[in-house]
């Protein structure tokens, strides 16, 4: 699993992805970790197949008992089907996920981990030295869907928004935005159901100061590419299957 440090301050943001041992027929995902001095948050920790490589990778940065928090942006299997295994590995951890999805996510196995339900209007995850904002992103693509904003690191975790489907082993940042667009277009048009939801999200996110926009698949956007992405997404018609 490739590890890329994307913020280093009083705490760290690390991106894990491009797992070379991932089976070919499952979608490649990016996992993010926020590491403070005593705690560790795993953002969209991934599917069952990713549990072992992911935990092995995190052990480079944190001991098991300091992995205290998990966040699931939504209910998809590529996001959180590993929950049943984390539940065994981290019995004292918390899972921050949509209140709306609780009864569904528990199907993955969540007996020891504490389910912290997120209300529709979002909330915060307090890790002691940093407080992260949970930003609503409903219907993009999931009915109850959240992003994470770190105002200090200026990192915005956008879940499936900004996702691109790429060949394995590609760089972690967008280098040529125009060339990147084709890898995102169909994904957004087909998976995102609502132009109205998209507009509401754009309005909200435009108001935030963002250095890195970090999606759950494909490459991250840095600097001016963040604005380019927002403009491109604003102009895109979504929900094309009907």
């Amino acid at each position: 699993m490739k590890m890329t440090k994307i913020y280093e301050g009083a705490y760290q943001w690390i991106m894990y992805g491009r797992d070379p041992y991932k089976p070919d027929n499952i979608i490649d995902t990016n996992q993010y970790v926020v590491r403070t001095d005593k705690r560790c948050l795993l953002i969209d920790p991934g599917g069952i197949e990713l549990f072992a490589p992911m935990l092995a990778a995190v052990l480079h940065h944190a001991p098991v008992d300091e992995i205290t928090d998990l966040f699931a942006s939504h209910q998809d299997p590529d996001i959180i089907s590993s929950l049943g295994l984390w539940d065994q590995a981290l019995p004292h951890a918390k899972l921050h996920a949509a209140a709306l999805w609780e009864g569904f996510l528990r199907h993955f196995g969540c007996e020891s981990i504490q389910y912290v339900p997120i209300a529709d209007n979002g909330g915060v995850i307090n890790l002691g030295s940093v407080e992260l904002q949970i930003v609503p992103a409903h219907y993009l693509h999931s009915s109850a869907n959240f992003n994470i904003y770190d105002p200090q690191a200026k990192i915005f975790f956008s879940g499936d928004i900004g996702a691109a489907l790429e060949a394995p082993g590609k760089p972690v940042f967008v280098e040529n935005f125009d060339a990147h667009v084709e890898k995102m277009r169909y994904f957004h048009q087909r998976w995102m159901p609502s132009n109205q939801a998209k507009r509401a999200w754009i309005d909200r996110v435009r108001g935030l100061d963002i250095d890195i926009l970090a999606p759950q698949h494909g490459r991250m956007f840095k600097g001016d590419d963040v604005k380019r992405f927002l403009d491109w997404f604003e102009a895109l018609q979504v929900g094309i299957a009907v």
């Binding site: 072992a52 092995a56 480079h60 001991p63």
Partner: peptide
Amino acid sequence: RMAEACKRFEKVAASAESALHAASLRES
């Protein structure tokens, strides 16, 4: 689920040998 977890934990232990915090896994 527990058998599955044991199996995966052993996998982690094998692949994280060089990790700084590999020993922390032993207890769980």
